[in-house]
Nucleic acid binder design. Structure first.
Lengths: 211, 211
DNA sequence: GACTTTGCTTGACACTTGTCAAGAAGTCTC
DNA sequence: GAGACTTCTTGACAAGTGTCAAGCAAAGTC
């Protein structure tokens, strides 16, 4: 993803140069993600992305080959920020209840705080079924998320003194189904949506463990 | 959805007139669904839809107010064809195993035979998060599908001599999560995708029943 | 301080999009 | 068969799209 940190320190100018390029790409990616999260893939244009940044529309092609290259970069950038979300909870929790409560709290928090990003994720995953160039990046994120859920479920089983009753992909698909439902319904009823998510996940989690 | 069958028989001309309009709308909707299923929402234009039909691009605005009106009509038309898919299985099965096998068989069959339609459905549900005009129709279909899953689970519980352990929305979200995963992965590995779907659904279903 | 490189803006291009109006072709009515 | 209505085609429109080339301005280099 990034070549930063590879250059030796006797070329400080070049390092900052590369870093500057990378920082610009990140700045553009963040503007793009903001726009994509608001408008969705189908309605987001490069000019709109540039309007939401500090640059003009031409600069996009200075840092990215084309539109799909930018969006692909956005997806890869996004993944670095989302898949370790629950790691702290997993590591610090000492009882199953504590883990469950911490997981659910973080889950509803990200549902509320980052609704546009989650909307975008489900949009992009759907787009990847039609746009081959997005496939690989989407698959990679799906795997990260699956591993994340698996760490939680594994630790949960450990704390409860049992074993996961389903494999990692199944567990991810189930939890993701519940979460996507909450994201889709969030606009209509934010409070109720996160409330129901908590209740549903906590009712399902125990069923995925054999004691 | 349709006003057919409401007119009395003493106005045969008007009936066939209205029917003709409705038939044209349906023909256009089917062409549109075919195109949408192949290209996805973002890449489907009215001209492309017309190219895949027997008409020219202008005719769309004779039968539909605008693009979103056509797509909304498509969604409503689509729903009439998909939510009773498992009803026969539910009604004829006399044992839990028979119901499960029939359900899984139909499920993989529709996954294979109607992949583009399922892709489109997940695409449109994502679009509905950004396009308010699609919301109502998507919610209506989601409810139909939820009721469909609920009928299956209820009958399954009955045959197994137990009770559903989750509510209808939860059951739907879980099964839908598994199905969406299968649809997304279908392009990469069709056979494996449906195989895993069968295995996963059949491993999860019993967990949703308390005996 | 001239020269080169880098970063960014501007304006243009070819093309596609949704929409609509004018009118042709067909159908029906009397 | 003339006139009216329905159905469909054609061509145009304004707006928006991704892309790119020319050139300006600042930073770095010698």
């Amino acid at each position: 993803m990034s070549s930063a940190g590879v250059m030796p320190q006797d070329q400080p100018a070049r390092i900052s140069g590369i870093d500057k390029i990378e920082r610009r790409r990140i700045a553009l990616a963040e503007s793009a993600l903001k726009t994509l999260g608001e408008l969705g893939y189908a309605r987001t244009s490069l000019r709109e992305i540039a309007n939401n940044s500090e640059f003009t529309h031409g600069v996009v092609h200075y840092y990215f080959r084309d539109k799909i290259d930018l969006i692909s970069y956005c997806v890869r950038y996004y993944k670095t920020k989302c898949a370790q979300r629950y790691d702290e909870v997993v590591e610090t929790a000492t009882t199953a209840d504590e883990l469950g409560a911490g997981f659910l709290a973080k889950m509803t928090q990200t549902l509320v705080d980052e609704t546009p990003m989650h909307r975008l994720w489900y949009d992009l995953r759907a787009q990847s079924m039609f746009e081959d160039q997005l496939r690989a990046d989407v698959v990679a994120i799906d795997q990260l998320l699956e591993a994340m859920i698996w760490r939680i479920l594994g630790r949960y089983a450990e704390l409860v003194g049992g074993e996961p009753a389903v494999d990692a992909s199944t567990a991810y698909a189930l939890v993701d189904g519940l979460f996507e439902q909450a994201v889709v319904n969030y606009a209509d009823d934010p409070a109720g949506s996160s409330e129901r998510l908590v209740q549903r996940v906590s009712s399902v989690l125990p069923k995925l463990i054999t004691t």
